[in-house]
Amino acid sequence: MTKVTMTINGKAVSGEVEGRTLLSSFLREDLHLTGTHIGCDTSQCGACVVHVDGKAVKSCTMFAAEANGATVATIEGQANEDGSLNVIQAAFQEHHGLQCGFCTPGMVMSAAALLKDNPKPSVSEVREYLEGNICRCTGYHNIVKAIMAASGQDVSAIAAE
């Protein structure tokens, strides 16, 4: 067992992990941050996306020991300080960008990473960026629309309800 220390959603945390403990397992099982989901075994679905040192990564494809000393952000830390939904979360709700909610944490975390690097993405940039996030419910329409809206761009031309 190895001791790891990291900052998660602004809080210092530490724990004992095995070499094989994935970051996702550490988050879910040791820290009970179960908003990070596991939807596949091959690093494709993206339900587990978190930020490590500001970059989107698949927490199911990184060992907890490798995040030692890192700053980690998960879905649980995304809301505004007063608990209200942040701009991206609010846009997902406003534009119905989620249904069953299982892929949603990864989608929100990927969207946040995208908008940090590319504050005004085009529709095709959004679609390409989501290559590693699979959603089975929405057909992606409203996810893309929500991210465009969260970036402050006019989405009124995109078909709505």
Partner: peptide, 15 residues
């Protein structure tokens, strides 16, 4: 707008 979204968007859904 869906009320269930809030828990799913904040990682507090309980699957």
């Amino acid at each position: 707008r869906r009320r269930e979204d809030v828990r799913f968007l904040t990682g507090t859904g309980q699957y």
